[in-house]
Amino acid sequence: MLTTLKQYYRDPLYRNSITMMLNSAFGAFFGLLFWIVTARTMSSKGSWDRSEVRRLELI
């Protein structure tokens, strides 16, 4: 099985495909981690009023 993976990795098409899939997986993992940390650290009291949200929407 390891030799088969080495053969795939030598081919540029497969190497680029594997790299893109790993990049997507890492991005999804760290994006999920970011939102988990953000949800746990931010206040749920609604500290932002509507005017602040509307100002951010304009950006």
Results as ranks from 00 to 15, higher is better:
residue 1 M to C: 11
residue 36 I to P: 00
residue 10 R to T: 10
residue 27 G to L: 08
residue 6 K to N: 12
residue 9 Y to D: 01
residue 7 Q to V: 06
residue 25 A to P: 01
residue 40 R to W: 09
residue 47 S to F: 13
residue 37 V to C: 04
residue 5 L to M: 07
residue 8 Y to G: 11
residue 19 T to P: 00
residue 28 A to N: 10
residue 28 A to D: 12
residue 53 V to W: 12
residue 22 L to Y: 11
residue 34 F to E: 08
residue 40 R to Q: 14
residue 5 L to C: 01
residue 11 D to K: 01
residue 58 L to N: 06
residue 43 S to N: 14
residue 44 S to L: 15
residue 38 T to S: 06
residue 29 F to Y: 15
residue 41 T to R: 11
residue 24 S to G: 10
residue 22 L to E: 06
residue 1 M to I: 11
residue 11 D to L: 02
residue 15 R to C: 02
residue 47 S to Q: 12
residue 16 N to F: 09
residue 36 I to H: 01
residue 51 S to V: 08
residue 18 I to M: 12
residue 52 E to L: 13
residue 53 V to K: 08
residue 50 R to K: 14
residue 4 T to P: 00
residue 48 W to Y: 15
residue 47 S to K: 08
residue 28 A to P: 00
residue 50 R to E: 12
residue 17 S to I: 07
residue 20 M to W: 13
residue 6 K to M: 13
residue 23 N to K: 14
residue 54 R to W: 04
residue 47 S to G: 11
residue 54 R to Q: 08
residue 20 M to L: 15
residue 48 W to F: 14
residue 57 E to T: 08
residue 46 G to E: 10
residue 59 I to D: 03
residue 38 T to M: 04
residue 33 L to W: 08
residue 7 Q to G: 07
residue 19 T to L: 15
residue 10 R to I: 02
residue 30 F to Q: 06
residue 21 M to I: 15
residue 54 R to V: 04
residue 23 N to H: 09
residue 11 D to A: 02
residue 39 A to M: 03
residue 40 R to I: 07
residue 48 W to P: 00
residue 16 N to C: 09
residue 21 M to Y: 08
residue 46 G to P: 02
residue 8 Y to R: 15
residue 48 W to T: 10
residue 27 G to T: 09
residue 55 R to M: 10
residue 43 S to T: 15
residue 3 T to V: 13
residue 7 Q to E: 09
residue 36 I to M: 03
residue 53 V to C: 05
residue 31 G to F: 06
residue 18 I to L: 12
residue 20 M to E: 14
residue 55 R to E: 07
residue 33 L to N: 03
residue 11 D to S: 01
residue 56 L to I: 12
residue 11 D to C: 01
residue 24 S to Q: 12
residue 14 Y to H: 11
residue 51 S to C: 09
residue 59 I to V: 05
residue 33 L to F: 02
residue 41 T to A: 12
residue 35 W to E: 04
residue 26 F to Q: 09
residue 59 I to T: 00
residue 10 R to W: 05
residue 3 T to W: 08
residue 5 L to I: 02
residue 41 T to I: 13
